[in-house]
Amino acid sequence: MAKVLLFGPLRDLAGWREREVEAASIAALKAQLAGEDDRLGAALSGPGVQVALDQAIVLGDRPLAAGAEVAFLPPMSGG
């Protein structure tokens, strides 16, 4: 099981901040979440959304070990 964390508008959209999910990879995790909630799936694949695996930003797909932490971070703005 992986611990999934959502932040900012992603959390608001999903209606949850943290949950445990069984998935073999980040791509499989995204597909599972999208299958449960179309709007969340679209948001997770949107521009600027970053993925942190065990508190390190990663690009592309990665396998998930038992106990992994996957955080989806919304696009950041600044000024």
Score class of each variant (00 low, 15 high):
residue 1 M to N: 06
residue 1 M to I: 10
residue 1 M to F: 09
residue 2 A to F: 00
residue 2 A to T: 10
residue 5 L to E: 06
residue 5 L to V: 09
residue 5 L to T: 05
residue 5 L to Y: 04
residue 7 F to T: 08
residue 7 F to Y: 03
residue 8 G to Y: 04
residue 10 L to H: 06
residue 10 L to I: 02
residue 11 R to V: 11
residue 13 L to T: 04
residue 13 L to Q: 04
residue 13 L to V: 06
residue 13 L to Y: 10
residue 14 A to D: 03
residue 14 A to L: 06
residue 14 A to K: 08
residue 15 G to K: 00
residue 16 W to Q: 04
residue 17 R to Q: 15
residue 17 R to P: 04
residue 18 E to Y: 02
residue 19 R to C: 06
residue 19 R to Q: 09
residue 21 V to H: 03
residue 21 V to F: 03
residue 27 A to F: 11
residue 27 A to T: 09
residue 28 A to T: 07
residue 28 A to M: 07
residue 28 A to N: 06
residue 28 A to L: 09
residue 30 K to W: 12
residue 30 K to F: 14
residue 34 A to W: 00
residue 35 G to S: 11
residue 35 G to M: 10
residue 36 E to C: 08
residue 37 D to I: 08
residue 37 D to N: 12
residue 38 D to P: 03
residue 38 D to H: 10
residue 38 D to F: 10
residue 40 L to I: 08
residue 40 L to T: 06
residue 41 G to H: 14
residue 41 G to W: 09
residue 41 G to P: 05
residue 43 A to H: 07
residue 45 S to Q: 13
residue 45 S to T: 14
residue 45 S to G: 15
residue 46 G to H: 09
residue 46 G to S: 03
residue 47 P to I: 12
residue 48 G to K: 07
residue 49 V to D: 00
residue 50 Q to F: 13
residue 51 V to P: 01
residue 51 V to M: 12
residue 51 V to A: 06
residue 53 L to F: 01
residue 53 L to M: 00
residue 54 D to T: 02
residue 55 Q to E: 12
residue 56 A to M: 10
residue 57 I to E: 14
residue 58 V to M: 06
residue 58 V to F: 01
residue 59 L to V: 15
residue 60 G to I: 14
residue 60 G to R: 01
residue 63 P to W: 02
residue 65 A to P: 01
residue 65 A to Y: 07
residue 66 A to N: 14
residue 66 A to I: 12
residue 67 G to D: 05
residue 67 G to M: 04
residue 67 G to L: 03
residue 68 A to L: 12
residue 69 E to A: 08
residue 69 E to R: 02
residue 69 E to W: 00
residue 70 V to R: 00
residue 70 V to W: 01
residue 70 V to L: 02
residue 71 A to F: 10
residue 71 A to H: 11
residue 72 F to M: 01
residue 72 F to I: 01
residue 74 P to N: 07
residue 74 P to M: 05
residue 75 P to D: 00
residue 75 P to K: 12
residue 76 M to K: 15
residue 78 G to R: 07
residue 78 G to A: 08
residue 78 G to T: 11
